[in-house]
């Protein structure tokens, strides 16, 4: 038997590289993400464009778009492994924690890419005030971190179910509610131009939520990933 190195970062990197290569050759997740995000954005801008909206409404709309885009695209990460029968090959090749971390990082980067496309378009079409761009960036980053950490473990659970399609938003919504409310508050403060120190508690909640979700997922993923 060959001696093997145990570098977790290299293994997670290999999984990430494989997922990106597959994604850019098939574009399944990215297409679902972008189609949903851009369609919703256009509908919102046509229907609400002429009206003045409060910062809280803008913040809620941004997170509704990001939440449902994530639900449309991120479930694919595990569902495709189960549907295409590649999950067994992965199970035989590495430990579950590597698989969770690889899929989580892939989902996070994909969601950040979508946010990087959607938010500038939102700002362009609906012209909300942007008082504190750095706070908006931080809120979106931390919000996407929590959203991907939660969606990754839930997508692994959903991939085992016979009805995969609509289960993820139903499972994810109650779990993500504290994150979404905090992210909406943080975004509202960013749009209103509040300084970072006033949003410290929101940022702490978003970061803590992500840390808790990643830790719990690493502890529980083994049970989710195993077959009965």
């Amino acid at each position: 038997m060959v001696t093997r190195s145990s570098g977790w970062i290299l293994k997670v990197g290999a999984l990430l590289n494989k997922d990106f290569k597959g994604e850019f050759r098939t574009r399944h997740a990215l297409n679902s993400f972008l189609m949903f995000a851009l369609t919703t954005l256009i509908i919102v801008s046509f229907s609400l464009g002429p009206y003045y909206l409060d910062a809280v409404i803008h913040a809620a709309l941004i997170w509704i778009i990001l939440f449902f885009s994530a639900m449309a695209g991120l479930a694919r990460s595990f569902v495709k492994e189960e549907e295409k029968g590649t999950a067994y090959a992965l199970r035989l090749s590495t430990v579950p924690e590597i698989i969770y971390l690889g899929k989580f990082t892939f989902n996070l980067l994909l969601l950040l890419l979508v946010a990087a496309i959607v938010i500038p378009f939102y700002l362009f079409f609906l012209s909300p005030p942007l008082g504190n761009p750095f706070l908006l960036f931080l809120t979106v980053f931390l919000g996407c971190l929590g959203l991907s950490a939660t969606t990754t473990i839930l997508a692994a659970i959903v991939s085992k179910a016979s009805v995969k399609g609509n289960l993820l938003p139903v499972l994810a919504f109650p779990v993500l509610l504290p994150l979404l409310i905090t992210a909406i508050n943080g975004t509202q403060m960013a749009l209103e131009g509040s300084p970072l120190r006033e949003a410290t508690s929101e940022m702490q909640v978003l970061l803590s939520f992500s840390v808790i979700m990643v830790t719990l997922s690493l502890l529980l993923f083994n049970y989710v990933w195993e077959d009965g």
């Binding site: 060959v2 001696t3 093997r4 190195s5 145990s6 570098g7 290299l10 293994k11 990197g13 290999a14 999984l15 494989k18 090959a89 992965l90 090749s93 590495t94 590597i98």
Partner: peptide, 8 residues
Amino acid sequence: FAKVRGLP
């Protein structure tokens, strides 16, 4: 699969 197994 070699990389994810950690084969040097």
